[in-house]
Design a protein around this nucleic acid. Sequence first.
DNA 1: CGCATGACCTACG
DNA 2: TCGTAGGCCATGC
Length: 114
Amino acid sequence: MKEAARPSTYERIYAVVRRIPPGRVATYGDVARLAGLPRQARLVGYALHAAPEGARLPWHRVVNAQGRLSLGRGVSGGELPQRFRLEKERVVFDQSGRLSLETYRWKRPPRRSQ
DNA sequence: CGCATGACCTACG
DNA sequence: TCGTAGGCCATGC
C-alpha cells in the first residue's frame, strides 16, 4: 500500500475538497480537474486516503463518476459512514445506493465569489 | 531512473 | 448491471 506523500499536490486537492458546500458532491475527476490535475482522479482518491482525520476534510462529499461511494474496497467501515454523513446533509440515495449527480453535483462558483 | 501500487475513469461486450 | 481492459500520473523503494 501507498504511504503519505508530500503535501504540495495534496494541498491543492484538499483545498478543492474543502470548497465543496454541504449537501453537494463532486466526483474524483472533478476535484482533480479543479485542483489543476486533469485526469488525476486516482491521485485524488489517494490523497484523501492519506488525509488525516483531523484535517476537517469533507471527504464524504467526494463520490465516483457513477454517483456511488467508493470506499468499500478495503477501508474499514466501508461506505456506510460516508453515506450516513451525506444523508445528514439531505442527500438522498436511491435503491441502487446511488445519488443523482445531476441534482447534487457541485458546480464551482463563478470566480471572485468564494 | 525503473518498477509497483492506487478511496478512479471511460469504453466495450 | 457486471466484469474486463487500458490509461492517467504522483509517490515510495
